[in-house]
Amino acid sequence: MNIIVCIKQVPSMANVQIDPETGRLQRDGVESVINPFDEYAIEEGVRIREKAGGKVIVITMGPPQAESALREAISKGADEAILISDKVFGGADTLATSYTLSSAIKFIGDYDLIICGRQASDGDTAQVGPGTAEMLNIPHITYVKKIELLGDKSIRVERIMEDGCDLIESPLPALLTVGKEINVPRISSLKGKMLAKKAVIKTLDAATINADAKRIGLNGSPTQVIKIFTPPQRTCGEKLTGDAKKIAVALVKRLSELGIA
């Protein structure tokens, strides 16, 4: 079973602080990490490989610095890692990114399953997975919380819906997106980190994957960001202190004034 896991490097939310004065994100020294949802995708890929054999190839589209995310994926059990990087990919929206990833996956070729995190924590769109599947002309299933292999030609999955779970069977190859419900990702082991340090990471550029210049980067992006702004920051309204009863009375009074309680 050859599995491709698509990941993205994002700024770590763990230490992002907001400047209380300006309400801006303070990005000094914010480290880049693997998108949290992609951690589950990597783990699931590795678990399937441990059961069914084959290999896990992790790919990412991004600047050269994204290589560190790929190395981390290797430390968590991926077999190979490929960086899809070219200046002409810059400014891509979800559609252009889907096209670029699908072109790279076609170039890589032999695969049975593609797993992605359900969305990236910076953009939060959840669009690249399904978009990539469409461009590869394979089925996709989002919000998967359980994967069962039925031989090497199909899978049965549980997909989370707002009111429960749908059970769906799909032929392979297929693309799945996953979140935290599916597994608990492993922590990179010492030996994994040593492997990651030594790993050779291939880079694919636009020419290699034969990408159409009109469909990549800013030119291939139907959406354009025209304005970016910081929403007004919330500040503390009223502090209620004192003994518990006094606080409770004060709160309920205010809630009832608002027509809530």
Partner: peptide, 19 residues
């Protein structure tokens, strides 16, 4: 919505803005 809007947008090649 998030699942198949993305697919529809990719199929007809247009922009989709989430959330």
């Amino acid at each position: 919505g998030r699942s198949f809007a993305s697919r529809v947008a990719a199929k007809i090649h247009t922009g989709l803005t989430a959330d």
